[in-house]
Amino acid sequence: MNEKNNSLLVYTLIYFGFLYIPVLFLPIFSFNDANYMSFPLAGFTTDHYEEMWSKRNLHKALWASVKVGVVASVVSTAIALLAAKAFVRYKFRGQNVSYGAIMMPFLIPEIILAVSILIIWINLGFPLGLVPVTIGHILFCTPFAMLILIARIEGFDFSLEEASRDLGENAWGTFYRVSLPLYLPGIIAALLLSFIISFDEFILAFFLSGSDATLPMYMWNQMRFVKKLPHVLALGAVIIVFTTFIVLLAFWLRNVGQGKEKKDIAIKL
């Protein structure tokens, strides 16, 4: 379709405005020298950002989120990598059922996952804290990581792995010398994005973290106090910038090398 459609373009731009502008208020007001978030802006200040340095609880929550995020992303990416390979490589009985089962945590209301883990965890007599949060995050991140990896592995030429076996490498050598380097951009993208999901996740942390607040929990607790709002805004702005950076990096990685493959195909044709 070579024709243009200006009314649709205008609509699309308005829609993107609706998507993005509300979130932009966070950084705008984080520099506002007032406790209320209202126009006109009262004046420019970086006080709210400086305030973050002195909050010990914030540092603790940040560290908690990083720990949970790293463990959850590494474990869920590893589990997802194996599963993604199974779905791309093989046709097997029960394929759709297995796929549906693994994707379920992505669809079921999170509160139900949180509540059911909460019940089993307390009844096993374990204390609430970062451990159950991490377990919940592994469950929640795995379908995302699997989707990303399937998209990356799909179209992967499995005869490359056979060629490596044929040329004298055993299964580990093949994984290390052929599969890993070729999957790597996808694996890193999956790691980064599952880290971000875990880092931003609220409901599971809300039910399972007990007194060990993660960063979203910390923000939640601060949001109730009007006086502390500006500093939540500053924190939120930092998180949004950080998340955007990581996600863009992951997108870039996901597409790295795929351009080369396209050239490949072009030459073949």
């Binding site: 490359l160 044929d166 040329l167 490949d264």
Partner: peptide
């Protein structure tokens, strides 16, 4: 297993490793 056999194969689509160059491909085995 394939890596222990005295055979080598030329694949239908050639299966040239895309992440290493021709020389490294040849040295692979």
């Amino acid at each position: 297993p394939p890596d222990k056999r005295p055979t080598n194969m030329v694949f239908q689509n050639y299966a040239i490793f895309p992440h290493i160059n021709v020389e490294q491909n040849i040295k692979f085995g």
